[in-house]
């Protein structure tokens, strides 16, 4: 009798402790669903201009720069040459640069890419699903993901050579 009562007490306290701990824990470490520094980038699966489907997985083990852009966004357009140049330079250094176009038609993107001589891989996010997952607000926004698959930085605004350089260093 006495023993069983003790067991009931312990079970209840334990249950309360676990559930309560979970509740408080999820309040303290709440991930408001927005990816942040140190977290893993959300998975995506997008069609590239090359017509193939690209997933986040294929970049594992590499440093990754994901640039969200649109042809209507002036600073995005202005940083294109820098990204192109960097892509060419870093191609063999285990760093990949990809551009995710936000919501535009393939035609528009193709024309744009042709017009500005962009060769680095461009993925199309026509339904803006990835854009939403990555919580993109103002553009351009650039995610830096290191070879361990963790976000090292999220840069909002136009990149210049120094800021890009500095962030690329953290990728390996």
């Amino acid at each position: 009798m006495k023993n069983s009562r003790r067991i009931v007490q312990i079970v209840i306290l334990l249950g309360v402790f676990i559930l309560g701990g979970y509740a408080i824990g999820s309040a303290v470490f709440k991930s408001d669903d927005k990816p942040g520094r140190g977290s893993e980038p959300p998975a995506f699966s997008l069609v590239g201009l090359d017509g193939k489907v690209h997933k986040l997985d294929e970049y594992t083990g590499k440093g990754l720069v994901i640039n969200f852009w649109g042809s209507w966004c002036e600073p995005c357009v202005k940083e294109m040459p820098l990204l192109e140049k960097t892509w060419k330079a870093m191609k063999d250094k285990n760093v990949e640069i990809i551009g995710v176009n936000v919501g535009e038609d393939e035609l528009t993107v193709k024309n744009f890419v042709g017009q500005f001589g962009v060769d680095f891989p461009i993925l199309l996010d026509k339904d803006k699903l990835a854009t939403k997952k990555y919580a993109i607000g103002p553009m351009p926004t650039t995610y830096f993901v290191n070879s361990k698959g963790k976000i090292t930085d999220i840069y909002v605004g136009m990149l210049d050579e120094d800021t890009l350089e500095e962030r690329l260093k953290q990728l390996n």
Binding site: G70, W72, E74, D105, T108
Partner: peptide
């Protein structure tokens, strides 16, 4: 044949046709 499309037509500083918004 549709060759180019601009939803919000405009010209940039270099006088090239661009779209100004989505």
């Amino acid at each position: 044949e549709l060759k180019e499309k601009y939803l919000d037509f405009g010209l940039n500083e270099e006088g090239q046709p661009v779209t100004k918004s989505q």
